[in-house]
């Protein structure tokens, strides 16, 4: 008996399969690019969220006619814009705003897409049909038109409204992705087994199906996060983004619509553009590593 316990223990220490987190960490460690990106990303986020604590957003948004279009100096590290506002301060607050917006849009679309996608995929049939037709309808709507109209008619246009309207349109892709995965999973015997074991539907969806689509969700979440940073910026650039009182990376870049700023006052828009580039690229590289971690055949580590 003791022998058996002994051997069992040895096997256990040797054979315990690595947890998901460990696999992801291995993969990121193996990929120098992803590792570097992760460090840069964390550094930027910690700095931006940390620094914005000590900054007064109102102070930064305040117009000061005595210091218009000043070049970078020791007073204004990245110069000032046409309102005499500190570009460095706007960059910090803007990065924070843009990232927060992107994070929440991604989060909300993930929640909606996940629940509807799982329901449609698991139940199939009529449920699937109804949900998919709703998705088709949302996709058929002219998105940009809609956004422009909403931006024009809402009385107060702020971060929350922006998150809401973007979420309205962006959940569809996720729902479709999750649905297709759930459709193929529900045909597997472990789902049938749970059904014959008397497990209720909601439990099967949450505890059997969800863990098996989770790798897909995580990867998609990260890659969408990168995409949504650019999304906010491009809309703001078009003039339908956030008002200037809430600085974002997009507002800084949109100053470059003025040819004079574009040509001579590089300090206003170049830092913000670089910030977007760096953020999107580094999130993407980390996302790629996660994607490989989720698929055993592509793993390097």
């Amino acid at each position: 008996m003791e022998m058996k316990v002994e051997s069992g223990k040895i096997i256990q220490t040797k054979d315990v399969s690595p947890s998901g987190m460990k696999i992801i960490w291995q993969e990121i460690k193996k990929d120098k690019l992803a590792m570097g990106s992760l460090i840069i990303l964390v550094a930027i986020l910690v700095f931006v969220y940390g620094a914005s604590f000590f900054m007064d957003a109102k102070e930064i948004a305040k117009v000061d006619f005595l210091s218009i279009y000043m070049e970078p100096s020791s007073d204004y590290w990245l110069g000032t814009d046409y309102g005499g506002r500190d570009v460095f301060g706007q960059l910090i607050i803007g990065t924070r705003n843009s990232f927060t917006i992107s994070l929440f849009i991604t989060l909300f679309t993930a929640i909606i897409g996940l629940s509807l996608g799982l329901l449609a995929g698991y139940f199939g049939g009529a449920t699937d049909n109804v949900i998919m037709r709703v998705i088709d309808f949302v996709i058929a709507l002219p998105q940009l038109m809609f956004i422009v109209v909403v931006v024009t008619i809402v009385p107060v246009f702020n971060v929350y409204v922006f998150i809401l309207i973007m979420t309205m349109f962006l959940w569809t892709g996720k729902a479709r992705l999750i649905r297709s995965k759930a459709l193929s999973e529900r045909e597997l015997d472990y789902i049938h087994a749970s059904q014959t074991l008397g497990t209720p539907h909601w439990k099967i969806i949450l505890f059997q199906l969800l863990p098996n689509v989770s790798s897909l969700i995580i990867v998609n979440f990260i890659l969408n996060l990168a995409g949504n940073i650019g999304l906010e910026s491009s809309l703001t650039f078009l003039g339908f983004g956030l008002p200037e009182s809430t600085p974002s990376l997009g507002t800084l870049i949109s100053y470059a619509r003025n040819p004079d700023v574009l040509e001579n006052k590089w300090w206003i828009w170049v830092p913000a553009s670089l910030m977007i580039l760096v953020l999107m690229l580094s999130i993407n590289f980390v996302g790629q590593a996660l994607k490989r971690a989720a698929d055993a055949r592509q793993r390097r580590g």
Partner: peptide, 26 residues
């Protein structure tokens, strides 16, 4: 029921304890 395919009839993300205890928990 005992299923045909032992590879797809056990949830790959669950430990043996959770798999075997599932009916008990229900």
């Amino acid at each position: 029921m005992i299923f045909q395919d032992p590879y797809s009839s056990l949830n790959p993300k669950k430990r043996v304890l959770d798999i075997i205890a599932e009916p008990l928990r229900n």
